[in-house]
Simulated scan of single mutants.
Amino acid sequence: MEIISVQYPIGESALARDASPKALAIGHFDGVHRGHQNVISHAMTCARAAGLQGAVMTFHPHPKEVLGRSPHYNASLTPLEDKLERFRRLGVDVVYIVQFDLDFAKVTPAEFVDDVLRPLRVRRAVVGFDFTFGARGAGKPETLWALGEPDIGVEIVEPFMQDGDKVSSTRIREALMNGRPEEAAELLGELYAVRGVVVQGEGRGRTIGFPTANIRQEDGFFVPRQGVYAIMAETEGRRYPGVLNIGVKPTFHDSLPEPVMEAHLFDFDGDLYGKTVTVQFVAFLRTEKKFGGVDELIAQIHADADQARTLLTAYNKK
């Protein structure tokens, strides 16, 4: 898969790297959820049928982040690296990463078609039913269809429905904010995951019989609701079941400047310091709370671990 970074106006270097005619799926695709997968797969099918290259155009950073329209878009369901990996799994040949800035935000729908799509030799554009483009979102799928004539055909993909409602990044974020990772997984088509590096913590977990990995998540990931979760964790090519807490450790602290993420991996014996861990959220167990003492906390951790083992055993048998 070739990855090409593009800044408006498109430079000759970007055009020279790939002059092949192509079918192009266009969108931000945060999460690359089942609805996005439907759009991209449709574009790849169109490409194969017409003998074109199968391409995706995404925008970085998210337009809502640049334009300040949402407090949640300073973090992504899939930061760019993860998004690209999902595109690769969908069989995409070429990815265009368009730098979204305030200048690009002023581009009109007509300029987008004439100065971006046509120079890139797009012959078929595939978009979702709610796609918008151009300054102030003035362009709609029907606008793209009209502006594309006669040389750019436009395919408009209908919404992908799940449980009577359309699959969307917003719906996934709401599920994660409300402690429903199972719902998020259904919408994504896979478990929601964040990634981070294990750093030195307070070391208290080991003294009470539950050593934990203090995970400093990489920038850019949307973090689910605070609380305790059953998880699967992957590091150095191996996966481990476990239990994880996102919170401020109220039993030991009156306040922390920000929540911390601590994972206890079942049946793991080793040193994780400095290693990268990917945490997949399987189920929400409970909210974080302050306990009356260490013994009460230990009893609750045992209960959490037992519940997590039961849930994860069932999950891994699916």
Rank of each mutant, 00 (worst) to 15 (best):
T276K: 14
Y240T: 11
D304T: 09
G293Q: 08
I208R: 02
A303E: 05
F221V: 03
T207E: 01
I208H: 06
A308N: 12
T235H: 11
H302R: 11
Q300H: 15
D304K: 12
R309D: 01
V248Q: 11
L297D: 00
M177C: 06
A299C: 08
A213Y: 01
F284R: 10
T251C: 03
G203N: 15
T251R: 02
Q280P: 00
Y273S: 13
T251E: 03
D267V: 05
L191R: 04
L285K: 08
L297K: 00
Q200I: 09
A299W: 09
L297E: 00
V194K: 00
R309S: 03
V194N: 00
G209H: 03
L191N: 06
D267F: 04
P181C: 06
Y229M: 02
E288W: 11
E262Y: 06
R204Q: 11
I215N: 04
F268L: 12
T287P: 04
A305H: 05
V294D: 02
K290W: 12
L285G: 13
E296P: 10
T287Y: 12
G205E: 11
T212H: 06
G227V: 01
Q217N: 09
F221T: 02
F221M: 03
G274R: 11
R204K: 15
V228R: 06
K289G: 06
F284E: 13
F281M: 14
L265P: 07
D304N: 15
G292F: 09
A263M: 07
A184F: 01
G247F: 00
A263K: 07
G247W: 00
L176E: 05
V260T: 12
G203V: 08
F252Q: 04
R225C: 11
A175I: 14
R180A: 10
E296C: 09
